[in-house]
Design a protein around this nucleic acid. Structure first.
Length: 274
DNA sequence: TGAATTGTTATCGT
DNA sequence: AACGATAACAATTC
């Protein structure tokens, strides 16, 4: 569930407590989700200082002093919590790191889909990921190149982390609505104007979501208020904010997809259907 | 009880 | 062969 804005929010929250801290111990009670293994992760991080806490796509990245990196992917239900939080008892603890100031960072994950990865070669580990949509290098030209060489539908393509990094189901739907593009539009049929519109929409939505600390949906991710600003996601049959037409829900590649049939017509400038 | 939930990967088809 | 579509999978909640 956590997408780029939620992960970015988590990184920013944890950064002051993690950067500059030496890791004293690591343990995991769910060996399946530690790569290459629990002992590899332990050997890689214990006794070393975290120089920087960053993010790549939906990965939380611990930069270690010796050039190693620890990556945490939250997948559906993963969260980072602190053991000393007053009035809050974390459940489903799968791993923890003890820091040299006595604090314990917890990795909680009800569904056990999350992953903890230690690597000595970060570029190789993240080589398959597409560009970061909020970096300056992500220009309309870059997006145009990604779209033109694919004949896939926009929705699954934007969800594909090897095409663009960081978008998930929520912000893909929101970006397509903001750009006025139907989720089933073929990627290689967009005009230059539509590409530019989509580029601007992706960045605007992600920035807005970060400013709102992400989207809170049930118990999985707390603390954000972007859910108040969602215009299509989860609003099936409710009126479109722009035109009042009821929002339609579709199933695209096993994913729920929400859009406004009036603001996001399938027939684009050069789009075609049958 | 089983439907819903998601990112990733394996597999099948074109 | 390369790409696209689809299914499977992890495990839990409501």
């Amino acid at each position: 569930m956590p997408e780029l804005p939620e992960v970015e929010t988590i990184v920013r929250r944890c950064r002051p407590r993690v950067e500059g801290r030496r890791i004293r111990a690591f343990a995991s009670s769910w060996a399946k989700n530690a790569f290459p293994s629990v002992s590899h992760v332990r050997r890689g991080v214990v006794g070393r200082t975290v120089t920087r806490l960053g993010r790549r796509a939906k990965f939380i990245v611990f930069h270690m002093e010796d050039g190693g990196h620890l990556l945490v992917h939250l997948r559906m239900s993963g969260r980072l919590e602190w053991a000393d939080q007053p009035g809050f008892r974390p459940e489903h603890i799968r791993a923890h790191w003890d820091l040299d100031d006595g604090r314990r960072l917890l990795f909680c994950d009800a569904r056990k889909f999350g992953r903890i990865v230690y690597t000595r070669d970060l570029p190789a580990t993240t080589a398959a990921l597409g560009p970061e949509p909020l970096e300056p290098e992500f220009t309309p030209r870059v997006l145009a190149r990604i779209l033109r060489r694919r004949r896939r539908q926009l929705k699954p393509l934007l969800l594909d982390q090897t095409a663009i990094a960081g978008l998930g189901n929520i912000y893909t739907d929101e970006a397509l609505h903001a750009a006025g593009l139907h989720p089933l539009t073929r990627a290689d049929t967009l005009s230059d104007v539509q590409v530019r519109r989509l580029h601007a929409a992706i960045r605007r939505i992600l920035r807005l979501a970060i400013r709102n600390h992400g989207t809170t949906i049930d118990w999985i991710y707390p603390g954000g208020w972007m859910q108040r600003r969602l215009r299509v996601y989860g609003r099936t049959d409710e009126p479109c904010c722009d035109c009042g037409t009821p929002i339609v829900a579709l199933r695209v590649g096993q994913r729920s997809t929400h859009f406004c049939p009036r603001c996001q017509p399938l027939r684009g400038v050069r789009g075609r259907r049958h």
